[in-house]
């Protein structure tokens, strides 16, 4: 089956979980307020369909949610953990980082922890410092974790399905701004997005823009503007941050020789730094101009819209960076 249909990112996420729960009786989800459909409607209708044991409401107990999911994952089930806002996952960092991420290795390969941690990320709705963060680089730093960040409805579905089938703990970052975004989604129980493969969201010969999650769309908007000025930007949507598709980035760079990395997270020590370092180590002779990184300054996220907007990367900032690169 290779037909497609159009749906929103949130509908795609619901469909993914529904299909995987139909396919595999060991899949279940746990988190706060899931019975009501989750904070963003990403569990809508599922408790009616699968019952409260498989779409489980929990106490406000993030450490127990994560720890219990690990225990259940090592005991023959595939839990999908809902953390509500990525910021609250920090209440369960021990359970994820010291426990789940290390269980397989530390126990000499005896354990598997097939759990998915869903974390809604990013600036959305002006919710300030404790409800808006993008902390992907915390997780890419941790051996044992898979880190995914879908930017489209297609990958919201395809990556959640792939994550559920993955035998290692996966952190799946779903951007709050993307829930209503529509896109073409592949039908079919086995229409997975492969983990570790980037998508060339737009091809071009003059410069490579590498991004993930919501910032992919800012890059595409910038590429439109640039095209009208005669600059052809290639936009790579990484989709997976660990493992990440180095080869896709290197191949694009060999063609364009120029690179701008765009992320919503704080630039300092962000995942963009890892990409820049690998490119510098590997493709130095292909580079025609210095690598640039765009992201948030190292500032907690403020509440007032006008202040929050100061931190966001805009298409205009991307086009400015591109022009700087193309001119040098």
């Amino acid at each position: 089956m290779n037909s497609t249909c159009t749906m929103t990112y949130v509908e795609a996420a619901i469909a993914a979980l529904r299909e995987e729960m139909q396919r595999d009786a060991s899949v279940w989800a746990l988190g706060e307020d899931l019975g009501r459909g989750g904070v963003f409607g990403q569990y809508k209708g599922l408790q009616n369909e699968f019952g409260p044991a498989r779409i489980a409401d929990t106490p406000i107990s993030e450490a127990a949610i994560m720890g219990a999911a690990l225990g259940a994952a090592m005991t023959g089930t595939r839990p999908v953990v809902e953390m509500r806002f990525s910021d609250f996952a920090l209440c369960a960092v021990d359970e994820l980082v010291n426990q789940a991420a290390k269980a397989r290795y530390m126990f000499g390969g005896q354990a598997r922890a097939p759990l998915v941690v869903r974390e809604p990320v990013g600036m959305w709705g002006y919710l300030a410092a404790q409800h808006s963060q993008s902390l992907e680089s915390w997780y890419t730093h941790i051996p044992g974790l898979v880190v995914l960040a879908p930017a489209t409805a297609r990958d919201a579905k395809g990556l959640l399905k792939a994550a559920i089938r993955c035998d290692d703990p996966v952190v799946l970052l779903e951007h709050k701004n993307l829930w209503p975004m529509r896109g073409e989604v592949a039908n079919g129980m086995d229409a997975l997005t492969p983990i570790g493969k980037a998508d060339v969201a737009r091809s071009g010969k003059d410069i490579t823009l590498v991004s993930w999650s919501a910032m992919v769309h800012e890059c595409l908007a910038a590429a439109d503007i640039l095209a009208s000025e005669g600059i052809e930007a290639e936009v790579i949507d990484l989709r997976s941050l660990w493992p990440w598709d180095e080869e896709a980035v290197f191949a694009s760079l060999r063609k364009t020789g120029r690179l701008v990395i765009v992320q919503e997270a704080v630039t300092t020590s962000g995942f963009g730094a890892e990409i820049a370092a690998r490119v510098a180590e590997t493709c130095h002779s292909d580079l025609k101009s210095p690598i640039q990184r765009l992201g948030s300054p190292r500032v907690p996220i403020p509440y007032a819209p006008l202040l929050e907007n100061e931190l966001k990367v805009s298409p205009q900032m991307i086009t400015a960076a591109v022009k700087l690169s193309v001119r040098s």
Binding site: D87, L127, A128, A129, Q130, P302, Y303, A304, L307
Partner: peptide, 26 residues
Amino acid sequence: GTCRGKGGSMHIADFSIGMLGANGVV
């Protein structure tokens, strides 16, 4: 604003009266 517009409702604080902050994390 009590926090110069940086906090919003969930982070209101007024240290001058001993109010050490609302909190976004339960």
